[in-house]
Design a protein around this nucleic acid. Structure first.
Lengths: 373, 373
DNA sequence: ACACTCGTGGCAACCGGTTCCCAGACCGGA
DNA sequence: TCCGGTCTGGGAACCGGTTGCCACGAGTGT
C-alpha cells in the first residue's frame, strides 16, 4: 500500500491501484483499457482481472482533460414541462446520444439571469455546443449579451445554437434553427378569415416573447392581406399555459367581448380556452371556432379535435445538434428555417350566413390538408 | 510565447496564459479567482484584467479532478415526451440546480442495454447520484443487475435512486422514492364499482412493466374486495401512448366487447380512448364512463373533464434528489412511498338502473375530492 | 539598528488519466 | 556466438487546474 490505495471496499480506485494490483505500471493499464497498443495476453488478463476485482472505471473528467473524453452538449429551455419544449428536448437528446455526446440540461423558468449563469457554466464545462431552446424577450440588451456569448463560445471552439429563436446580427458566430411562426399563423388565420370570421380573438403570449410576436404578426398580416384591420381589443396578452387560456376566455366572456373565433397562440392555451368555452355553454365550433398552434399530440383528443399548426419540434431539436456538431470550423453561419403547415381538424366552422366554399375540408388523422407555408 | 500560449484570438486559454499576461504565477491567478487567500489589490487588478482580456474561464473538468468542481447528477428516463416523465424530470432538475448540481440526462426509449451503458458512463463521470425514473420490466435478471450497479455506485461514493420504480432486495444500497400505484388504482376502480359498473375495460400497459402491474393489481383488488372476479377478456395490454388507447378501444368496439366503463392505465391512454369512443358515436359518461391515471394538466381539458388519480410527480422528482444528496454516508436506505388521490371530474356516471349514492360529487378545479389513499 | 511579524507570491506536488520515447527481453538469422 | 529486429512495458512529461510550504521584502516595536 503506497500512498492512499484501497483494496476494493471503500471509495473509487485509481488507475494506479489497478496497476499495483496487476503488478504492472499505470501506462500498461491505460493501454489495456484503450485497446490499441500491443499487450501480451498474460498481462492483459491480469489487468482485466484487477479491473474487475476493483470494479474500476476510468474517471471521465480526467480523460477529458487529457483530451480523450466523451464530448458534452448543453441545452437550455424554459420549462421541460411544456409539450413543445419537451419534443425539442427529445430531439436534441436523441441526436446527441446518437452522436456519442452527453447531454447537460437546465431549465430557466424564463429567468434570464439564470440562463446566463448556466451558459457560463457550460463554457467552463467545455461543452461542444450550447443550445438555447424556445422564444425569448428580444431586447437590444439581449442581443448584445448573446453576441458576446456567441463570440466567447466560438473562440473557445464551442458553438451557440438558437433553436426556435430568432437570429442575431449577421456576422455573429451562431447557428440558428428556426421555424416560421409568422407564416404558420398567417395560414391559420387566413383559414379562419376564409370561413367568414371577422372578429377573431387572439390569445397571445407575453408581449416581448419572440414566439408570441411572430404568431401575432401572422395574425395581423392575414387580416391586412384581406384589407381588414383587427380590433385591438381582440388581442389579449398572457402566457402559454392552459390556465392562462382558460382565464382569458372567462374574462372576455364576462366582459361581453364579441368574437366568432378564437386563435390561441398555443395548443395548451387553446385547451384551456376550449374548456372555458364549454363551461360557458358555448359549442365549438357551432357557436365559436377555435384554433391552436403547435400540434401537440393531445390536440387530436380535444373535443372537437383541434385545428392547429404543425411544427416539427423534434426535427428542430435533431437538426440543431446535427448542424452544430457537424460543422467545419470556418463554415459560414447556418440559418435554417423549417416549414410548418396547418392541420385541419374539426374545431372551425363557417360563420352562419357566410358564403362557405369548402366547408367539407377535413383531415382526420395524419395527412396535412393545409398548404405548406 | 512559451509553449502553446495564445494571445486571445484562437482556442481556449489556460490559467498559465493568464498568469503570463498578468506577469504573475499560475498559483496567484488561481488564488485571485478563488477569492480566498490575501492578494494585493494591484496584483488582483492585473490578474482580473488579463482574465477579462482573454475571456478566461477555468476548465471545470480540471477543477473537478482537483477536487473542487460542480457536482453532477444524472437522470435516466424512458422518454421525456411523456407528461408524467416530464414532470418528474422537472422536479429533479429544479431541485438539482437549487442544490448547485449539474444535470445530465439520458432517455432510453425502454432500451435496457442503453440504460446500462448510460449508468456506466455516469459512474465514470463521478455523478453524485444516478436517478432512474419510471417503471421498468422487473425480472430477476433486472434485479441482479441493478443490485450490482447499486453496490458499484455506492462503493464509489455515489448513489442509485429509483424514482417511481419498485425497491430492490433489502440491504441493497439504494434510495427509493415511490408512489402507490396499487392504492390509487384501487380507489379509482372502487369509484367505478360503487357507481354500479361491473364490466370495466382495463387498458393496461406492457405486461412486464411495473407501473402497469401496480395499476392492474389495484384494478383486480378493488373487484375482489367486492367479491367480484373481472372477466379476463376485459384486460387489454398495450403501451402508454395516446395511439394505443385509441387503437384498443376501436378494436374492442369492433369485436363487440361489452363494457360500461373504461379504466385507462394512463391519462394519455384515456385521451386516445376518449376520442375513439367519440368517433364511435358513444357519449362519455352517458354511454360509457372513463377514468385515467396521472392527472396530467390536460385531463381537465378533455371533454368531459377526466376523473383520474393525482400523482405528485414533480414532488417525486424533487424528493428523489433531495433525499439522495442529503443523506449521510452510513444512513439506512431510504424508501419513501408518496400518496395519491382520486380527482373526481365529470367522466364517470352511474350505470342506469343502479342505486347512486352521491352522483353529485364533483370537483371543478383544484381541491381533490377523492380520499387520500 | 536589529529582530520579529505579517503580507505576498512562487515552487512544486498532486488530482487521475494519456502517450511519447526509450530500454530490456527475446527471437531468429548469419 | 553475436547482431539486429520485434515485442513489451516502464519512466516521465503533460493535460489544466489547486494548494501546502517556504522565501523574500516591508513595516514595526524596542
Amino acid at each position: 500500500m503506497t500512498r492512499k490505495s484501497n483494496g476494493d471496499g471503500g471509495g473509487r480506485s485509481t488507475i494506479r491501484d489497478v496497476a499495483a494490483r496487476a503488478g504492472v505500471s499505470a501506462s500498461t493499464v491505460s493501454r489495456v483499457l484503450a485497446g490499441d497498443y500491443p499487450v501480451s495476453t498474460a498481462t492483459r488478463t491480469r489487468v482485466m482481472r484487477a479491473v474487475r476485482e476493483l470494479d474500476y472505471v476510468a474517471d471521465a473528467r480526467a480523460k477529458a482533460i487529457a483530451g480523450v473524453g466523451t464530448p458534452t452538449l448543453a441545452f437550455v429551455l424554459d420549462d421541460i414541462t411544456g409539450p413543445s419544449f419537451a419534443h425539442m428536448a427529445h430531439g436534441v437528446e436523441r441526436e446527441a446520444t446518437r452522436l456519442g455526446h452527453l447531454c447537460l440540461v437546465c431549465s430557466t423558468d424564463g429567468d434570464t439571469e439564470h440562463e446566463l449563469e448556466f451558459i457560463e457554466t457550460m463554457r467552463a464545462q467545455r461543452a461542444a455546443a450550447v443550445i438555447l431552446v424556445g422564444g425569448t424577450a428580444d431586447t437590444a440588451e439581449y442581443r448584445a449579451r448573446m453576441s458576446r456569448i456567441a463570440d466567447s463560445l466560438a473562440s473557445a471552439g464551442s458553438r451557440l445554437v438558437l433553436c426556435g429563436r430568432p437570429p442575431l446580427d449577421p456576422g455573429t458566430p451562431v447557428t440558428v434553427i428556426e421555424y416560421d411562426n409568422e407564416s404558420g399563423a398567417y395560414a391559420l388565420c387566413s383559414h379562419l378569415l376564409a370561413r367568414g370570421h371577422r372578429r377573431i380573438l387572439f390569445l397571445g403570449g407575453k408581449p416581448e416573447n419572440t414566439t408570441a410576436q411572430g404568431r401575432e404578426r401572422g395574425y395581423l398580416a392575414a387580416h391586412r392581406a384581406r384589407g381588414e384591420e383587427p380590433d385591438p381589443q381582440l388581442l389579449l396578452a398572457g402566457d402559454f399555459t392552459r390556465d392562462s387560456g382558460h382565464r382569458r376566455i372567462r374574462q372576455a366572456l364576462s366582459q361581453g367581448l364579441e368574437f366568432t373565433a378564437v386563435m390561441a397562440a398555443t395548443d395548451m392555451v387553446a385547451a384551456g380556452a376550449l374548456t372555458a368555452l364549454h363551461e360557458a355553454g358555448l359549442s365549438v365550433p357551432d357557436d365559436v371556432s377555435l384554433v391552436g398552434y403547435d400540434d401537440i399530440p393531445f390536440a387530436r383528443d380535444l373535443h372537437p379535435p383541434l385545428t392547429t399548426v404543425h411544427v416539427p419540434y423534434e426535427e428542430l431539436g435533431r437538426l440543431a445538434v446535427r448542424t452544430a456538431l457537424g460543422r467545419t470550423p470556418d463554415a459560414p453561419n447556418e440559418h435554417l428555417l423549417l416549414g410548418t403547415h396547418v392541420v385541419v381538424r374539426d374545431s372551425v366552422a363557417a360563420v352562419p350566413g357566410q358564403l362557405v366554399p369548402d366547408a367539407s375540408a377535413r383531415v382526420s388523422s395524419q395527412a396535412p390538408a393545409g398548404g405548406l407555408t
